[in-house]
């Protein structure tokens, strides 16, 4: 068991250690998310009296953009330093490399998101720290970050990748966004209809995680 999971854990630990040593990348993603939540709160407060129904949309657009921003950065460094080629040359299956990278990105992203939930709890005067919401955030993060990790590997070698990544990722994430926003709305007692949104979110998350795991080895094959 440890033989198969070991390499993935090594990649996770490597990425998390790097993220910790060079905090600028993830800190800027966190700062971006914070600024986004603040600006949304401020701008919507100018436009409308009741901003609480907008909260699920605010949170998820922020999470998606911050995730794409951070995911793109994490691979840009790998391709600059050439460590990604080294990882692929090592006698480890590409699936394990992918799982390691995705897990590290998910963990870092979850930290940022929980901080934002705390901030939004204060700004929007709504309790956002509940078990239901944590499950929803976890599912949405697994789904979106697993896909952006795959796409950022692919776009890392292309010109203009910073712009390309959101253009590629966001249309694919529309089902996940619908599920996540509606499920969050349901958890906050915003009117969203009766469909099982958390189920839709789970299916979308499973879809992107499973396809990314399957397609990563095919994408990086030389």
């Amino acid at each position: 068991m440890s033989d198969t999971v070991g390499p993935a854990m090594a990649v996770v630990m490597k990425d998390l250690r790097l993220a910790w040593r060079d905090r600028a990348g993830w800190a800027s993603a966190g700062a971006f998310a914070t600024i986004a939540v603040l600006v949304y709160s401020f701008a919507f407060d100018l436009a409308t009296g009741d901003i609480r129904p907008l909260l699920p949309g605010v949170l998820w657009t922020t999470f998606l953009f911050a995730g794409i921003f951070a995911g793109g950065q994490s691979f840009a460094r790998e391709s600059e330093e050439g460590t990604f080629d080294a990882l692929l040359l090592s006698p480890v299956s590409p699936t394990m490399v992918y799982l390691g990278k995705a897990a590290a990105n998910i963990i870092a992203m979850l930290v940022i998101e929980f901080l934002q939930l705390g901030l939004a709890t204060i700004l929007f005067d709504t309790n956002l720290v509940s078990l239901e919401l944590l499950v929803i955030v976890f599912l949405g993060t697994v789904g979106s970050v697993s896909l952006t990790t795959l796409l950022s590997t692919m776009s890392a070698s292309m010109r203009g990748r910073a712009m390309l990544l959101p253009v590629m990722a966001l249309p694919l994430l529309v089902p996940l966004l619908i599920g996540a926003v509606r499920a969050t709305g349901a958890a906050l007692n915003v009117e969203v209809g009766a469909a099982p949104w958390t189920l839709l979110l789970a299916v979308a998350a499973l879809w992107s995680a499973a396809l990314s795991v399957l397609l990563f080895p095919i994408a990086v094959e030389r």
Partner: peptide
């Protein structure tokens, strides 16, 4: 790979919307 992802996303998009 992106085109394959896109094609497989279409049923999910239709269902969700």
């Amino acid at each position: 790979v992106f085109a394959v992802l896109g094609a497989l996303d279409i049923p999910l998009v239709m269902f969700s919307v």
